[in-house]
Write a protein that binds this DNA or RNA. Structure first.
Lengths: 233, 233
DNA sequence: CAGATTTTTATGTATGCACATAAAATCATT
DNA sequence: AATGATTTTATGTGCATACATAAAAATCTG
C-alpha cells in the first residue's frame, strides 16, 4: 500500500467514512486504534482523534476507553433541526414575513401550565397569542406564556410589532429548555385563524425554556397544514 | 481578580456559557480573543479553542477568522433528534415491540416516487408496508420503497419478521439522506390500520436515503395520534 | 472458584509550538 | 477617490509529548 498522505483531519475523516460506507468496516465492527491508524495514515494521533471524535459526535462511531472504537451498529440518525426565529424561517424562503398580535393579557394560567412551569398555582402570567404570516397568508399560530417574575421588562412591552419569539431571544437569558414535536387536529378557532379546514392536521412545536430552576416561557406553535421541517442526515 | 484556574476545556466552556447566559456578553457582542481568554483563564489557547469551537458547533457563538468570535445574535436552537430504529424507540419506553408485515410486492412506483428516487420511470421497486406495535397497540405505519438494483439481496428477504428499517440498516450502505417531519390527516385506510379516527392528526417522518447518486430507499412513517418526539435544547 | 486487586491499554485531554488561512485594515498607486 | 497590493491579526489546525481516566483483562487471595 502506498501512502496517500492524509495531512489533515478532514481527509482522515473522509477515509474513515469511506471505509464505513463501503462496509470495509461493517456496523458493529471494532476498528483499529488511534495509534495504529495514525501510523497507517502517516499523521499524528491527535489528528486521528479529531476525526474520530467528530464522527462519534455525529453518531457514526461508538467509542469507549480501553474498549476501543467501533462502527455504530445502528447509526442513530441524528437529525439536527435548526429551530430559528420564525421571521428568519419565512424570509429564508424568500417570502414576506408578517406578524399580527391577537391577544395579550396577564392572567392566571390553567393548572397544567403553572404545573409545567413550576409557578404558584394562582400566580398570573403574561399570555400572548399571535399569528405569523408568510406572503400575507397565515403561517403559524403562537400561544405563549411568559413568567413576568423572571423576565425583566416584559410587562412594558406591547408585543404589537415584535413577536414574543424574537423579543425573548433578545432580552431573556435562559440556560436550557426542551422541545417536542407532534401533530394535532385544528380546532374550529384555530382553523379560522389559520384559514384552514377544521380538523386539519397541524404540525406542533412545544417548547419550554428555563433560566436555572425558573421557567421563562412556555410556547406552543401551530403550523398550517402542509408545513414541513426538514434536514439532511 | 483571583485566578479560579480553569484546568480543562469543559470548565472554560461553562464559564463562557455563564457569561453568555448572564448577559455579561450579550447577544451579538464580540468576546475577547482566544489568546486573551487563555491568559485570563490561565490555560493554553488550545484549550480555549476547544471550548469555543464546541460552543460554535452548538450554534451559540459565531466565529470568523480575523473578525473574531461573537455571541450568536439569534442562537438558532439546534434540536438534535435521535431517529432511532423504531424497535429501540419502543423498547426504550419499556413497552413490548411488535411487528406485522402488511404488504410486500415488486411493482412500478408512482411517478412521484421514481422521480424523487431518480429511477427509470418504468423500473419496478420493492414495496413494503408494515405496522409497528407497542404493547400490541398500533404505533407506526411504515410504507417503504426499496431500490433492488442498489441493495443486494433484498429480493431474498421476506421481511416477515424483520422490518425494512432494521434490515436496511444492517445490509445497505448509504452515504447521505434527508428527512422531513410534518403532519397529515389519517385516511380511512390508515385510520383502520392504526386504529384511530379517520382524519386524526398523524405525525409523519419522510426519509430518503442515498448511496452516492443512487437512491437506496424512500420511506414514510405515520405515527399514531398523540405521538411526540422530544429533545433537550 | 468467587471476589477483590492490580495491571494494561485505548481513549481523553492539556500544553507549547509552528504554521496555515481568511479577512479586515492599511498602505500604495493610479 | 477608486483600485489593488500588502500587512496584520484572529482563528484553524497539525504535531510531539505528557499525563489522566475508564474499563477490560489479568492476577492475586481467601
Amino acid at each position: 500500500m502506498n501512502k496517500p498522505a492524509f495531512r489533515n483531519w478532514q481527509s482522515v475523516q473522509e477515509e474513515v467514512l469511506r471505509r464505513i460506507h463501503s462496509r470495509q468496516w461493517p456496523p458493529g465492527e471494532l476498528i483499529p486504534n488511534e495509534a495504529d491508524l495514525a501510523a497507517e495514515f502517516g499523521c499524528a494521533r491527535t489528528t486521528v482523534n479529531r476525526a474520530l471524535r467528530a464522527l462519534a459526535d455525529a453518531g457514526l462511531l461508538d467509542r469507549r476507553r480501553k474498549a476501543g472504537t467501533r462502527v455504530a451498529a445502528q447509526p442513530v440518525a441524528k437529525a439536527t433541526l435548526d429551530i430559528s426565529v420564525i421571521r428568519n424561517e419565512v424570509e429564508a424562503r424568500g417570502q414576506k414575513y408578517g406578524y399580527h398580535l391577537i391577544d395579550r393579557r396577564e392572567t392566571v394560567p390553567p393548572v397544567a401550565t403553572s404545573a409545567a412551569m413550576n409557578t404558584p398555582i394562582d400566580a398570573p402570567l403574561l399570555y400572548l397569542k399571535a399569528l405569523h404570516l408568510a406572503n400575507d397568508r397565515p403561517y403559524a399560530l403562537e400561544s405563549r406564556w411568559i413568567n413576568g417574575a423572571v423576565v425583566a421588562g416584559v410587562r412594558d412591552e406591547s408585543f404589537e410589532t415584535i413577536s414574543g419569539n424574537e423579543w425573548l431571544l433578545r432580552h431573556a437569558p435562559y440556560t436550557h429548555g426542551d422541545i417536542a414535536f407532534s401533530a394535532t387536529n385544528a380546532t374550529e378557532d384555530e382553523a379560522a385563524i389559520l384559514d384552514c379546514a377544521p380538523g386539519g392536521a397541524l404540525f406542533v412545536i412545544d417548547r419550554l425554556t428555563w433560566d436555572g430552576d425558573k421557567a421563562v416561557t412556555k410556547v406552543r406553535i401551530l403550523f398550517v397544514p402542509g408545513y414541513q421541517i426538514r434536514t439532511a442526515l
